[in-house]
Design a protein around this nucleic acid. Structure first.
Lengths: 338, 338
DNA sequence: CTGTTAGCGCATTCAA
DNA sequence: TTGAATGCGCTAACAG
């Protein structure tokens, strides 16, 4: 591979001048600049990013943290859209994405260690448990960072307006005449912020309408997953005072719940109304079309990117909690009763 | 951040010796080794990856190429699983994933240029069009690379046994009594290998059974997408000699097709049998459960990782075309007729 | 406007 | 068994 020394030799100028041309310094004559630029293009020269970093301390790289253990992986039907939007936005700023790894080679047990090694300019965390040690470690480090899908007083975060979303869902079911409304939660015990928040807001929304939440009306959907929704719904179906409607904390949960209802020989929306959360791509392609609360994945990603880059540029960590609006998307999985 | 010079000062040894300890060189006394190791751990020292590279020429980084323009993005419900498996496998070897970017900052118009800049050790390409210029450029470069979901005589590739998959699908429908079997293709004109291969194998399988393929029986599903399947099915429904079964080149296509059938007031599998390809996660959670040809995403990813790392280690490009078995998964979207 | 010099942090000779 | 010297490719301070 060519170096700036090679270009210097070819053009007869010094490596410094070549470097200046590459980095658009003003103090180079047009004549020289053009000559060097020409050589640069003709030779297909690419600067060496690692060597650049050694001088500039900037890798133009953002580290990405997924906690796959809790089902939030690359393949997540909702967060993958968020990270895609995030990627596009940071690319506009000139950054690329590096995925955090724990490898034997580095004997690194945490993401932070990996990012220290690879010297990323900033870190984005996709959905974390509250109080997660790795997350705390990153928040307390010098790395600029942003966390998606949680709120935290000591960090920059971006999350959906869960409060509003839950209220929209419950109020809508109420409008349709439902009074017995159950909730399938995202699970993870009390560690998952989205899950606990939606449970809390579900209760509040019920309360505001004067509805009570009988025992067993909050069913644990485990990993925000199809199978979690499936088994949670099975439990709800065993209740002697069955609900007429179910508000699921995620679309996968809702789809799992619908599968469970179907397996019991019943039908949505005739026997149960089901409403989800997220609006994943296929929500509109299933039968029945899934009524849900749409989270704006694009805006979540973009906003996270903006906050992160702002911190990098300002060289200081910010503590803002951006909240992104949600909306109710009516399809066919809920119906009017009575 | 600490450097090996700092560790040298702390322990009283030279930077060289510290480096030797870090890299497990044998010619260091146990006493010295232990002292330095202790200091390393206590100080939380992490070597600087960029500086390391400058000496070793190895970044321990794999570049990832997605062609988002053709709908194969981070958020793809099938390939995201493949890349996840790939990631896990390369991590076992000590590598991390860097996503290829085209940024204004680098004025780079191709992925190859970006990877030259960032000096990745190898490149993985997720599903490419045949003859794609960027792909060709990478194949012809010095970078070890592997391409998923295509076959090519000049490169290392990993793909599913599409031939077998199509045959399984058509034979199964035949067994169920279907004779009028249509195909919804993946689209992309003639540039997408999976799409064209499945069209070809669909025809062959039909031929082998003595079935003919009437005009209009191959409908273009555009981007392997829900909406493509939806509109393709709409066209099939307008045929005067309607098929009784549809073999879709992808699960998203199949789900889109089912939605179209439903929108016309009809039903799967009563009015049409539909079989997909991929076995994406939710295939089993939709109504009806989608019968499909399962591609082994884990094995695709693992195999790709293995071939790529082998090329890196051997320092030479290989040209192998690994083919991963597929299987028929029977659910409820197909039924016996007559 | 151009070039000389030094240094970023590490691994690798090669002496000692 | 240890360490001094050198180079990887680049940018930045400074001098001319």
């Amino acid at each position: 591979m060519l170096t700036i020394y090679d270009i210097a030799k070819i053009t007869g100028f010094s490596p410094t001048t070549v470097s200046k041309v590459i980095n658009n310094y003003p103090d180079v004559s047009d004549k020289t600049r053009n000559k060097i630029k020409k050589a640069l293009v003709e030779s297909g020269f690419k600067p060496n990013a690692q060597a650049q970093f050694l001088s500039t301390k900037k890798t133009w790289t953002i580290g990405v943290v997924y906690y796959e253990g809790v089902g939030i992986g690359l393949a997540h039907p909702f967060f993958s859209y968020v990270i895609q939007a995030f990627k596009h936005r940071v690319e506009e700023y000139g950054y690329s994405l590096l995925f955090g790894s724990k490898t034997d080679r580095l004997k690194n047990s945490t993401f932070l260690e990996y990012f220290k090694y690879s010297r990323v300019d900033g870190i984005v965390i996709i959905s974390t448990e509250e109080g997660n040690k790795e997350t705390e470690e990153i928040i307390n480090s010098d790395f600029p960072c942003v966390i998606i899908d949680i709120r935290n007083n000591n960090a920059a975060t971006v999350s959906s307006d869960n409060e509003k979303g839950c209220k929209l869902a419950i109020d809508y079911l109420y409008e349709l005449g439902h009074r017995k409304i159950a909730h399938i939660s995202g699970g993870f015990g009390d560690r998952n912020w989205s899950s606990t928040t939606r449970i809390k807001c579900y209760k509040e929304a019920m309360n505001n309408l004067g509805l009570n939440v009988p025992n067993g009306y909050i069913a644990d959907g485990v990993n925000f997953d199809y199978s979690g929704g499936y088994s949670a719904m099975k439990k709800l179906l065993k209740l002697k005072d069955r609900p007429t409607a179910v508000f699921a904390a995620g679309d996968k949960l809702a789809l799992g719940a619908i599968a469970a209802i179907r397996d019991e020989g019943m039908n949505v929306p005739d026997d149960f109304s089901v409403i989800g959360f997220d609006d994943i791509e296929l929500a509109r392609y299933v039968t029945p079309g899934l009524t849900t609360i749409r989270q704006n994945s694009t805006e979540l990603g973009r906003s996270a990117a903006d906050i992160l880059v702002e911190q990098i540029n300002q060289k200081k960590k910010l503590t803002v909690n951006n909240v992104i609006p949600v909306e109710l998307v009516k399809r066919d999985s809920c119906r009017k009763i009575n």
